[in-house]
């Protein structure tokens, strides 16, 4: 029975990992751009939420507002800085985005200090659900449901709408998309903003679970890359599948072999790289 609980708990963790990683995957899919600042946008989302809640705003206001603020900041960063290095080799992408991540992290310390902080779950979701021996926080249930709805909505936008078709076309061939009269620069900025905004939203949602501290972006970046590599770079459904797989693995391993929980995640990633270099659902 404990394993059933762990699987359910793992799905909850995995949905948050999906939200964290899907932005990274979408950005890579469209722009072929490796964004090492993705964890820093997650960090900003968490801290914006923390700051707004500390100022007395409701979590329900703070959460979307934080995601929008991160999205706007990321789009601006793309316009001012990142679009200038798309055509350069990946090593430049890594150098610039690692630098950007460090700047954001240090700015976070300057603005909010080196100590962490706590974001209480919103009123009405600060209790627990009890089913027999199983106890689960209401807020985590909300995160699962919210992320599931968001995942379906995002999938519909990307697969079922004209905007999604343009984005997908851009990821196949930006030149041809431009020839059809679409402003690919604007599309790139919007997609980068969306991807980073999703990381910001993940940070906002994670804040009541994990609290905030200046180095939380590093851990998030590591998890995001694991999920994207397992799921397949640029694959939306791959990110969803891999997020849940990683979450369930982490949770079930807490019962089977607790000290190896992290190890198994990275071992799984290594196996996928060896056996399926494009990831579980990556495109050829």
């Amino acid at each position: 029975m404990t394993y059933l609980f762990q699987i359910f708990n793992g799905i909850g963790i995995g949905m948050l990992y999906f939200l964290l990683a899907v932005g990274l995957s979408v950005i890579f899919g469209l722009l072929q751009f490796v964004n090492f600042a993705h964890g820093a946008f997650y960090l900003l989302g968490a801290y914006f939420t923390y700051d707004l809640v500390e100022r007395g705003y409701s979590f329900w206001v703070a959460m979307p507002l934080a995601a929008i603020m991160v999205m706007a900041l990321a789009a601006l960063t793309e316009i001012v800085l990142l679009r200038r290095i798309y055509k350069l080799p990946h090593t430049f992408h890594i150098l610039v985005t690692v630098g950007l991540a460090l700047i954001i992290q240090e700015m976070t310390i300057i603005v909010w200090g080196p100590l962490g902080g706590n974001v209480p779950p919103p009123e009405g979701l600060n209790g627990v659900i009890i089913v027999g021996d199983f106890i689960y926080p209401e807020y985590r249930l909300f995160v699962i449901a919210f992320t599931a709805v968001l995942a379906v909505g995002l999938w519909w936008v990307l697969e079922g709408t004209r905007i999604g078709a343009i984005v997908r076309a851009g990821s196949e061939s930006s030149e041809n998309t431009a020839l059809l009269g679409y402003n690919t620069l604007r599309i790139n900025s919007a997609v980068f903003g969306l991807g980073a905004g999703l990381a910001g939203l993940a940070g906002a949602l994670a804040a009541p679970i994990r609290g905030v501290e200046p180095f939380m972006g590093l851990e998030a970046l590591g998890i995001a890359f694991v999920v994207v590599v397992i799921g397949g770079m640029g694959s939306y459904t791959g990110a969803l599948l891999a997020g849940i797989l990683v979450g369930v693995t982490q949770s079930v391993m807490a019962s089977l072999w607790p000290e190896g929980a992290r190890l198994m995640i990275y071992l799984g990633m290594a196996l996928v790289i060896v056996a399926m270099p494009r990831g579980l659902l990556g495109r050829a």
Partner: peptide
């Protein structure tokens, strides 16, 4: 429940703890 030095997610360990009453 042992955990690694890099662990940040403790819900799995807490689920174990709850089960042990």
């Amino acid at each position: 429940s042992y955990h690694s030095l890099t662990e940040k997610e403790f819900s799995g360990y807490l689920t174990n703890a709850i089960a042990a009453r």
